[in-house]
Design a protein around this nucleic acid. Structure first.
Lengths: 217, 217
DNA sequence: TTCTGATTCAAACGTATGTTTGAATTCTAA
DNA sequence: TTAGAATTCAAACATACGTTTGAATCAGAA
């Protein structure tokens, strides 16, 4: 059956890509683990590159749709007023981290997403921009309204830092659990999201730079 | 001359590793760009793996020594009292980000460091633990004293998020500059550090979770 | 059943990689 | 200057990879 083979390849590729990275996993390893023929990848996808893209897009599109849906809900609830910062961050973090509640593929993909972001493969850069364009615009606009006192530059920096905190957590669930002896465990999803929202919101709500260069030391 | 060849290989490898990742760059590319013979790598380092390790350790050891020196200075200045949170974060961020002031190798290595952290190559994991063991211990102790009211779990999460913000910035200097049309530019080092310290300190100083599960929504 | 298109399969192709080899060359010290 | 070690070099080795090929097999409609 055709469709079954294609999905089998996608699932197995996603699993192995998480564990070993794009360059670390070969088509032979994928097809062998999926119990399909080596040539099936090229028959169904065209190339390894296209397979990697397909693995990524299949899930990230759903996550970003959910993020935008959460933004929509929050905005219609807020009427004409600005959104609370923590609601925006919740919309940003929750769908990605929550995906880990799917015990089968979720946790794998959570790490894969961070991994893709880190690998910076050229052909993934375009996919990134396309899949994130609308979301980034919506997020920036929401933050702008939520923190109108903040200089644009400072606001962008803080969004960037918050994305970093999230990406780090997505990419790294094993390491943080190990280094804290299980105290911090990203598989406890709601707890993780709550801590992340608290941290990022407090960071975003901090007072801006006082004058020129006024930092520590 | 022996030493010159070895350093030439290290420098060139660092440069190319940043641009193309560990698996993306071949020994042939490195040795050709360095204008040395292919076999020199194995003569001086033993293997590609050992070369990669050497590239990493050469700089990260210096950065972590500087971090600990900053902690020492802050602690002797503070006497018996706890350190301000922003001083701890400054000690954590500044040496890594400041390395980018070296216009020759600095910026490259800043990205390489984040890249290594993301790649999670098995043989790098051991190097990471060794090179960071002392620093992590010192940092955790300093934060514990600086925020005694904070539950251990919450404290560890926040340190983790702050590390994420830093790693993201280190790994990503091109992307953030591009996405903000130059507004946020990690090559403006002090400005970057200041923004990062403000963000992380505010996140660390946020009030802890109020009761069970009390977050957004 | 028979035919046609879709799918699977084993095998091979061409290329790039990390590594090794052994001779040639350069440096160092007596 | 010269013996001996250190270093460089061109060439080859073995392997793994993504991709292609063409025949074999399967599915479903006539």
């Amino acid at each position: 059956m055709a469709a079954a083979t294609k999905e089998q390849i996608l699932d197995t590729a996603e699993e192995l890509l998480v564990e070993q990275g794009i360059d670390g996993v070969s088509l032979r390893a994928i097809t062998q683990a999926a119990a399909v023929n080596l040539a099936s990848v090229h028959y169904h996808f065209g190339s390894k590159e296209a397979l990697v893209k397909a693995v990524f897009v299949r899930r990230i599109a759903a996550v970003n749709r959910e993020r935008i849906a959460l933004l929509d809900a929050a905005e219609s609830e807020a009427g004409d007023g600005p959104l609370p910062v923590d609601r925006i961050f919740y919309a940003m973090f929750a769908p990605a981290i929550q995906l880990s509640q799917d015990p089968r593929r979720g946790r794998r993909f959570m790490r894969l997403c961070g991994r893709f972001y880190a690998e910076q493969a050229d052909y993934l850069e375009a996919v990134f921009e396309e899949e994130f364009a609308e979301l980034v615009q919506r997020m920036n606009r929401a933050f702008r309204r939520a923190a109108p006192h903040l200089p644009e530059k400072e606001l962008r920096w803080r969004v960037h830092f918050a994305v970093g905190a999230m990406a780090h957590t997505m990419m790294d669930s094993d390491r943080i659990r190990r280094w804290t002896q299980g105290l911090c465990d990203p598989t406890r999803v709601e707890e993780t999201i709550d801590a992340m929202v608290r941290f990022a919101s407090a960071g975003m709500n901090a007072s801006a730079a006082n004058g020129a260069g006024g930092g520590v030391r």
